[in-house]
Design a protein around this nucleic acid. Structure first.
Lengths: 343, 343
DNA sequence: CTGTTAGCGCCTTCAA
DNA sequence: TTGAAGGCGCTAACAG
């Protein structure tokens, strides 16, 4: 176990230790170390040297106590398992990490009590702001407005329109997917999606339908909803092909579903993309780049979403009164072999 | 944006506000709130009421300043992308979260400079301990021994044997996998793995070989090493079956590889598990439970590993001098349809 | 049982 | 340019 007891003066050095060693007062030492300009160059050098020789590290707690700001932000997630949370978290950590901000990670595991508990802990620690990250795009309960720090909701927007929320634009995502299939010449397009209780499923469908309508097309069959799994993708596409063997394009609600669809098409000796084009959703690389053929998909830019959330927090800390309501962030099409033949 | 300005007294209440409102001294208020037993019941009630009416929250920073402990721990990861880091992080967050400890998350993104930077920040914030989480099981450079707080290395052990490290037991994992195939009656067993530069690949192979040797068997062909991908799984198994068509069991170095293997076996009209049994590694549920048939795999119990790391930190904070060196944590076999026929 | 008095480690006036 | 003093919010001795 790493412990410093090596030296002898076990206690970590404080500023007054530095001051004493440098032969100056506490105030001067403070100024010297913080780069204040009211200190002689020689004095500063002496102080810095003393600090280094004692391997002095300023106590951020003490500093925060007077400063009023801690340079910390709470990341309150309801579900760390979810693979959507991680990129968002990375984006946020990224945006903050560049500066002087550190992130407290709290996983409430979908439990409102635990969430409340963590919230309280974060406030006790005087975080400068809080990002709430949900695992679905369905609106979630607001933490309320009587909090002493700014709050931003990411992925799962707040159900309160006077809160600040950022979430991916699933409607446009669905639209992009369908428009891409249309652009590659498909006319008999079907849609297989996941759990219809998810806002994500509904929103994407809206986008798909809108794109088809704009092109004067109609969806082949009804939207097939069930689960976000490969199994469902296999079953649904078998069902679909049985009743509509002339389908030439399938928009899938997730990459997992799309993987299942690819499996079934292969079993049925349909060529992808020549006979049927398939597009997934989420751009989950490990799934999308390992399929045969590789999977075209919609990427929600989650890392950027996390960064955007961090920016909102920054703005709020800096005193700006940001626009409330839900902001829908752009998604992007990633084209691979499942919609365009490789040459 | 949620702000408290609703009330009027914008500043968050402090203990002396509470004391004043309750008509007692600061010290008494402190005792009342912290459940000290030297305070009259009635007084305590009054103080608590005052605190509530002011929605007072104790300032953890001020408290930590005197206490010497902050109740925070740093989680220093080199690579948040990695899917191994997350469960470990969850396990740790879990173990801590139950108590009064909060976790600072820092992602160094594989950059030593950034890691050093984060380390310094964590020390400035006076964390009570640090968990370093790597993305591979290969040993990583030690942070050194001149740190004022305990450090535990998880997943990627420290290359310094006087540090404390916890990592999954890959050798036993490989052994478990091979033993399971042997137990199901397989005798012509091959091994397809990932990048041979990974300790994980080497360790698992050692376990596989040992199990075979114990059973008086030899590996069919050489170990096939390349990448941890489905593509490689497909290619390698095609290669394998071409030269050794009589193989009846394949130990795979990862679930991704195993998925590729299943694909190829299906293309070659081999039945799994009747003709060939396949076992993966990692028990990555989304891959393992969506394949046809579902994939038997080895689970590294990463959540528990995270918990174990947290425990080591607790112990060290409580003053115990924990055993140094690398501790190998048990893994477990998860049996599904790819090795045992469903009835 | 309650209140007074010192700090914890640092920063910031304000004098010298 | 330097130093002395006060305070951030709280807790822990001590007295009363």
């Amino acid at each position: 176990m790493a412990r410093s007891e090596s030296g002898g003066s076990s206690r970590t050095a404080t500023l007054s230790d530095v001051a004493r060693l440098a032969g100056v007062s506490l105030a001067t030492a403070s100024k010297a170390i913080n780069g204040r300009d009211q200190v002689a160059a020689a004095t500063r050098r002496r102080v810095i040297e003393a600090a280094e020789s004692l391997s002095f590290t300023p106590n951020a707690l003490a500093r925060s106590l007077t400063a009023g700001r801690t340079g910390t932000v709470g990341l309150l997630t309801s579900d760390l398992e979810g693979r959507f949370v991680i990129p968002i978290l990375m984006g946020a950590e990224d945006a903050f990490g560049a500066g002087q901000v550190n992130v407290f990670l709290c996983d409430a595991r979908g439990d409102a009590i635990r969430e409340q508990h963590h919230l309280k802990a974060l406030l006790n620690r005087r975080v400068d702001g809080i990002i709430v990250v949900g695992r679905q795009t369905d609106p979630r309960p607001s933490l309320g407005h009587d909090l002493p720090v700014p709050v931003v909701y990411a992925y799962a927007p707040s159900d309160d329109d006077t809160d600040v929320s950022v979430t991916p634009d699933n409607v446009t995502g669905g639209r992009l997917a369908a428009e891409h299939l249309i652009a590659t010449g498909r006319r008999r397009i079907a849609h297989i999606s996941g759990d219809p209780a998810y806002a994500a499923a509904q929103d994407r469908t809206v986008g798909v339908q809108a794109a088809l309508a704009d092109a004067g097309l109609e969806l082949v069959g009804d939207v097939l909803y069930s689960e976000w799994t490969e199994h469902w993708g296999r079953d649904a596409s078998a069902l679909l092909l049985a009743s509509h063997p002339d389908v030439d394009g399938i928009v899938c609600g997730s990459d997992q579903i799309a993987r299942g669809v690819l499996d079934t098409l292969r079993d049925l000796d349909k060529r992808v993309p020549e006979d049927v084009a398939v597009i997934g959703y989420d751009n989950w690389e490990v799934l999308a780049t390992n399929s045969r053929p590789e999977l075209t998909s919609i990427d929600a830019n989650l890392k950027q979403l996390g960064r955007a959330a961090a920016m909102r927090i920054f703005d709020a800390i800096d005193g700006a009164e940001p626009a409330t309501g839900v902001q829908y962030l752009p998604v992007r099409l990633v084209i691979r072999g499942s919609t365009i033949p490789r040459r």
